[in-house]
């Protein structure tokens, strides 16, 4: 009985959030909000990826825009210029993701901390400049127009609403994979790198391989997100994939709570949706948004999932310390 209850307890939040996710479009009539939710879901996939490298192994990756762009452009160029099937395009972008993971992960074997951050910034900038200037291949700032929407067994995912349900399924799948990884051997190794990599090496684990794995996971997830983004928007151009985009992903990760998959989901949705809600503030909205995020960083550095660790919140819900760990992982 006790075991069963525990299982139910664990599953309850997941089921509730799933129900909300599936019921939401019925209440949201406006296509604008549905597109927004789509974007939030795409961002969530990327943030779940970022969580592996930044959240778990603690290596700050500020080249997310470059990886995301690689995923978008692989899919977009293959489908528009070569007429490849969307799903093959997706697979191609996963392969590109693996390659980028190796390329970016390789330096991480030699360098860490701020140096790695600078490498990723350099990668992101080079990627953007190449996309902008290699006009013959990428179309330059003209962008890629007319990217076809995904189709599932002959069923066109051509409206935001259809895409929404598809993306909810994808996010569930991705989150499930991510949670499996986080809770599994790899996840423990990742966290060990964050805490003390010398100790890890002394028990005979190859740190470089662990870091490489986390980089590959991150870039695969991000490339998948990028690919969906391209199909969702139908048009991409390099001006979106700036340093700002990289920091936005980091914000999502951090707002939700680093190291936590549910946190990534919360952060991804809030950072995507909040600026749109704040639009009524007119020209001040971006300022207000930035201030809100900065305050949250200062007050709650471990993100919104850590809100239950605050004394007064715990009193409110009468939580004891034992029930904390589970959802944080």
């Amino acid at each position: 009985m006790g075991l069963k209850m525990q299982k139910i307890k664990k599953i309850a939040p997941i089921i509730i959030s799933l129900i909300i996710a599936l019921v939401l479009p019925i209440f949201v009539k406006n296509n604008y909000y549905v597109t927004l939710l789509d974007q939030a879901l795409v961002n969530i996939i990327a943030v779940i990826g970022l969580n592996f490298i930044t959240g778990l192994t603690g290596q700050v990756n500020l080249g997310m825009a470059g990886i995301f762009a690689a995923g978008s452009y692989t899919s977009a160029l293959l489908t528009t210029k070569l007429g490849v099937n969307c799903w093959l395009g997706l697979i191609a972008s996963i392969i590109v993701g693996i390659i980028i993971g190796y390329v970016l992960g390789y330096p991480s074997l030699r360098i860490k901390g701020i140096y790695l951050t600078l490498t990723t910034i350099g990668f992101g900038e080079i990627m953007r400049l190449l996309l902008t200037n290699m006009v013959n291949i990428t179309g330059g700032t003209q962008g890629v127009l007319g990217i076809p929407s995904l189709s599932l067994f002959g069923f066109e995912l051509n409206t935001p609403r259809r895409m929404y349900f598809f993306l909810v399924a994808v996010v569930c799948l991705m989150a499930w994979i991510a949670i499996r990884i986080v809770k599994g051997r790899w996840g423990r190794e990742f966290k060990a790198v964050l805490n003390d990599d010398t100790a890890l090496a002394s028990v005979g684990i190859d740190i470089s391989k662990v870091k490489l794995n986390s980089f590959i996971l991150c870039s695969v997830f991000t490339c998948v997100a990028g690919s969906f983004y391209a199909h969702l928007m139908g048009y991409i151009d390099p001006s979106d994939y700036t340093f700002d985009m990289s920091t936005r992903f980091l914000m999502m990760l951090m707002l939700g709570g680093i190291g936590s998959v549910p946190g990534s989901i919360i952060g991804g949705s809030i950072i995507t949706i909040l600026p749109e809600i704040l639009r009524f503030l007119k020209e001040y909205y971006w300022l207000v948004f930035s201030v809100i995020i900065l305050i949250i960083i200062l007050v709650l550095p471990y993100g919104l999932v850590s809100i239950k660790d605050l004394p007064f919140v715990r009193k409110l819900f009468g939580l004891n310390k034992n029930s904390l760990g589970e959802s944080n992982e």
Binding site: M5, K9, I273, I277, F317
Partner: peptide, 26 residues
């Protein structure tokens, strides 16, 4: 404990609902 857990779920649900009411309200 399970009751508390349910409360937690409800709280999350409420907060999300509030979020979206906020959207429409705004």
């Amino acid at each position: 404990k399970s009751i508390k857990q349910m409360l937690k779920g409800v709280a999350i649900f409420c907060s999300i609902v509030m979020l979206f009411t906020l959207i429409s309200a705004c």
